[in-house]
Amino acid sequence: MMRTAIGLMSGTSLDGIDVALLRTDGEAVVERGPSMGRPYDAAFRRRLQGALETAKAIGERMERPGDLADIERELTLRHGEAVRAFLTENSLKPADIDVVGFHGQTVLHRPNVGLTVQLGDGALLARETGIDVVYDMRANDMVHGGQGAPLIPAYHAALAAGLAETAGKPVVFVNIGGISNLTFIGSEIVAFDSGPGNTLIDQWVEAHAGIPYDQGGMIASEGRVDRGLAERYLGHAFFTDPVRRSLDRNDFRPPEGAAATLEDGARTLAHVTAAAILRSARHLPERPALYVVCGGGRLNRAIMGDLAALAGEEGARVVTAEAVGLDGDSMEAEAWAYLAVRSLRALPLTFPGTTGVTAPVSGGLLARAASGD
């Protein structure tokens, strides 16, 4: 049965809300629809950055110390506004949509203790939009021994099945968001976080230039790679540990202020992002022939240049999602729409090869629009 779903994604880069429409059966049939981005204003981004610090005090998943409850409400209301704007822009009504897949904002992720916290009130969003909402999709995976991330591989597999470029060849989908992650689709499906994505670069340029990110890699293009600084990151035990694990934004921290110039720091961290992907790819079952890159990092030419060069040394090609007819900005939001439909059908969201869960498991909580709970 086909369903029409809206996916909502607010990632670790804290830059805004991505909205995407999908018609799908939650399995092999995927019809991609329109999408849009709705950026956060600077003041709200600062509140979210503060929430990351406040959340460190959380010991139980439903705790909301400090002002986290207020931030959660505002975040949810902003998602509601985004859905209404999207419907208006595309001449749609709430009745046209079967379900909303709501990721929320991850403020704490500690898989080693089975704790993940995404701010977002699904019941409130259902009341605000008049549409059923599936949310909190990571927690059940962790209950069953998984890392709670990444969740997008099920959608990557559905996309790969429709790509002529990947026929019979192992392919890796690379999402470069705040944290980067890989999905390998070949003899089996394997997925894991690969290392820092844009988060270190964003924090570096915000601290040193007062801007939220290095647009297009312009700052990095003026710098050079500090090999010593790069190896401090790339020598991290995460890259050699045979046990793959998901990452929290705080697992890798930006360099100290005097470690490099603005330009050299941005260039070095761009190199770290690219090299981390290839180092983590050593844990895949076989070498991929193709890397398909999505997420904001694909727009940073320093990251993409290094990634193409490093992959080329191993005989692989690197392309953007757009080069194979996909949308690198909306893919994660599309995935949350797809996962919401799978959740409604009680289909697995995660698998032993993706999160380390003991067996394929579904997940997500359903908030009905009619009752709001």
Rank of each mutant, 00 (worst) to 15 (best):
V190W: 04
S280A: 15
A160K: 03
A158T: 02
W204Q: 07
R345Y: 07
D98C: 08
T166D: 02
P39V: 07
E206D: 14
G328Q: 10
G11W: 11
D241R: 14
G66M: 06
E334L: 05
T76L: 02
Q203H: 08
G104L: 07
H103W: 11
D141C: 13
G235F: 01
D306I: 00
L310F: 10
R127D: 11
V174C: 08
L92Q: 00
A337M: 05
A207V: 02
G148F: 08
L347E: 01
Q49K: 13
D136G: 02
D264L: 11
I277T: 14
H144N: 15
A164V: 14
V133F: 10
D202I: 13
L344G: 01
V190E: 01
S330P: 06
L182Y: 08
T354I: 04
I58E: 02
D193Q: 07
V30P: 00
G37P: 00
A309H: 07
R368P: 00
L8A: 08
E128C: 12
D248S: 12
I201A: 08
V29I: 13
P288R: 03
R232E: 12
G197A: 14
A69T: 05
Y155R: 01
G16I: 06
V143H: 10
V172M: 06
A5M: 09
A5S: 09
L269Y: 11
F238P: 05
A95I: 04
E332R: 00
A126I: 07
L159Y: 00
V143S: 05
T183E: 02
A28F: 01
A260F: 10
T116V: 12
L229Q: 13
N300V: 11
W336D: 03
W204P: 00
D67W: 02
S343H: 13
P352I: 02
F192L: 10
G216W: 00
Y291M: 01
D96G: 02
V117L: 08
A85C: 09
A359L: 12
A335T: 03
S180H: 03
R61I: 12
A164C: 07
M218F: 00
P348K: 03
R249M: 13
A281L: 08
L48F: 07
A289T: 04
Y135I: 00
E72W: 02
D248Y: 13
V324Q: 03
R287T: 15
N198M: 07
H109K: 05
D18E: 14
A164R: 12
V318A: 10
L262T: 04
G130P: 11
R3H: 10
G162R: 02
I176S: 06
A260K: 10
A157W: 03
R253C: 09
A276I: 07
G228F: 14
M2W: 00
V113W: 12
R317F: 00
A302P: 06
A369L: 11
A275P: 02
E332S: 05
F252N: 07
G257T: 14
P288C: 04
E53A: 15
G145T: 05
R267K: 13
S246F: 05
R38M: 14
P94Q: 12
Y135A: 10
M9R: 09
G120T: 10
L52A: 03
G101N: 09
L151F: 12
N300L: 05
V319Q: 08
A82V: 09
R282P: 01
